[in-house]
Amino acid sequence: MKTSNTPSEAAVTLKKDSENKREKIAANADKANILIEVQNLCKSFGDHQVLRGISTTITKGEVIAIIGPSGCGKSTFLRSLNLLEVPTSGVILFEGTNITDKSVDINKMREKMGMVFQQFNLFPNMSIRKNIMLAPVKLGKMSKEEAAKKADELLTRIGLADKAESYPNSLSGGQKQRVAIVRALAMNPDVMLFDEPTSALDPEMVGEVLSLMKDLAKSGMTMVIVTHEMGFAREVADRVLFIHEGVIAEENTPEEFFDHPQNPRLQDFLSKVL
């Protein structure tokens, strides 16, 4: 937390005001065990406004599913959480730190936020084990040996210990995505962000990935999942968000969300997908 010693200017006063505010919020977050708090998040690509003011809070251990029609901004919202997309305005507090502040080292924040992509994005020029080891070793989290041990543990956990020396191109889609998940886990993140993790998979491979995610949820990992798997959302999520035209149109527990949708758009959407 920064304090300014520079004297009486209007800007300084304003800054102090905002800092006070931030302190209060942080205190509240601690109280409510809040991991991420998003305040009035907006994002535009040129003239096209994708996010039109999203505010929500994510507490530790919570599993949140985000659904909505394509192009509604759900992926952009998810990618904004670790600043893959830099918000046009709004505040994102992660563990009490405003990560949209330019002075914040976003790399440090990202170490605690794992992310899984629709296209897996394994590094094709490295073996599976290397894929997993890379970040922990390069960022000084672990020694090479520790990282290798951790990688093998993780691979054993997902039943791919024999693939440690293989290269990504020799794996199936489901295997690749599971490796991608454990690669993120190797950094021991506080939250996992999933961007449509099963959309690029052949149907018979969706199960193995969802089952790993279910296990992860059970272990108490905080997860934010953009998905089209309504059944999975209903079963695993603590809360479901429906994003429509850049705003959260409805959020609720899965039961209420799917059984008694309030918003007509959600009703319309669910009637199409279910």
Partner: peptide
């Protein structure tokens, strides 16, 4: 692929 870059950055790599 741009995803390679994103994957790296998301792991906390500079």
């Amino acid at each position: 692929d741009k995803g390679q870059f994103e994957a790296g950055r998301c792991l906390g790599l500079t």
